[in-house]
């Protein structure tokens, strides 16, 4: 059974998704796609895929990521033909930040509730995306996997210091707070946003992956690449990535969410 294709002006995108709770008490990841049946919208807005990884005690992390995804998709759907995709992504992100912040404030947990967010729009003119936090966006092309977005973590900042020779790699590697986020959605203003101006060419055979950190903390990039190579379409890849991640049986396996979108030439 093949995944239904979504035609984007000659290019076909076959999206797949898989999710698991891991060894946590709650599922705090959320994900979504824009309406794949709305060809009119896709023609100017592309198909949007989004993953969000929430944080905040009790069920509030789940609320945060769910509100982030829902608000982002609702706001992005208001895009008109004249609005550039890049601008729509930024506008939707700002709305998501405000909505999560308002929720955090209403339960008296300002600064304790928030979410990462990675959203990508697939259009014929290319892939455009926006990212906050430590969820990941990969592109698999020409037999290699490349991470496109920068993680907003203390570890990433320490890596900069190591590169500049101001810190030893050993020191950076053992910092207990290296996984702490330096930017997230829901603080009422976003400190760091990864939001490139250029679009990424999409061509037949490419696979684009959006995932929460639960995936890449369980599997190395080599392992991810190997699994993708062997997968015929997005759903097969997503299922295989999830299964392999869970098979690692890590003691504190985080929630895992993975979206895989295979790109192919639309057969006429």
């Amino acid at each position: 059974m093949t995944t239904p294709f979504i035609g984007i002006d000659g290019l076909a995108c076959a999206p797949g998704n898989a999710q698991a709770i891991g060894k946590r008490d709650d599922q705090q990841d959320s994900f979504g796609y824009s309406d794949p049946a709305d060809a009119g919208f896709i023609a100017h807005g592309g198909l949007v895929a989004i993953v969000a990884d929430g944080m905040g005690g009790m069920a509030h992390g789940a609320d945060a990521s769910r509100i982030a995804v829902r608000t982002f998709l609702e706001q992005y759907a208001l895009k008109i033909r004249d609005e550039p995709i890049s601008q729509a992504l930024g506008r939707a992100l700002e709305a998501a930040d405000r909505a999560v912040f308002d929720f955090a404030s209403s339960v008296g947990k300002r600064r304790d509730v928030g979410s990462t967010l990675i959203a990508a729009s697939f259009a014929r003119a290319g892939l455009r995306w926006i990212s906050v936090g430590d969820s990941a966006l990969y592109i698999y092309r020409d037999s290699s996997l490349t991470r496109l977005n920068h993680p907003h973590t203390l570890g990433a900042r320490l890596a900069e210091l190591v590169k500049r020779g101001e810190m030893s790699p050993e020191e950076a590697a053992i910092d207990p707070d290296r996984d702490a986020l330096t930017s997230y959605v829901g603080a009422g203003g976003i400190p760091q946003i990864d939001w490139p101006a250029e679009s990424i060419l999409l061509a037949s055979g490419y696979m684009i992956i959006l995932c929460s950190d639960g995936l890449y903390r369980a599997l190395s990039e080599d392992e991810i690449a190997r699994i993708v190579t062997a997968s015929s379409d997005g759903q097969v890849a997503a299922d295989a990535l999830l299964a392999n991640a869970l098979a690692r049986d890590l003691p504190r396996q985080d929630n895992v969410t993975v979206l895989c979108i295979r790109v192919a030439e639309e057969s006429r």
Partner: peptide, 9 residues
């Protein structure tokens, strides 16, 4: 720590 906002929003 799960979050360090190293600069104000």
């Amino acid at each position: 720590l799960s979050v360090i906002l190293s600069e104000p929003a």
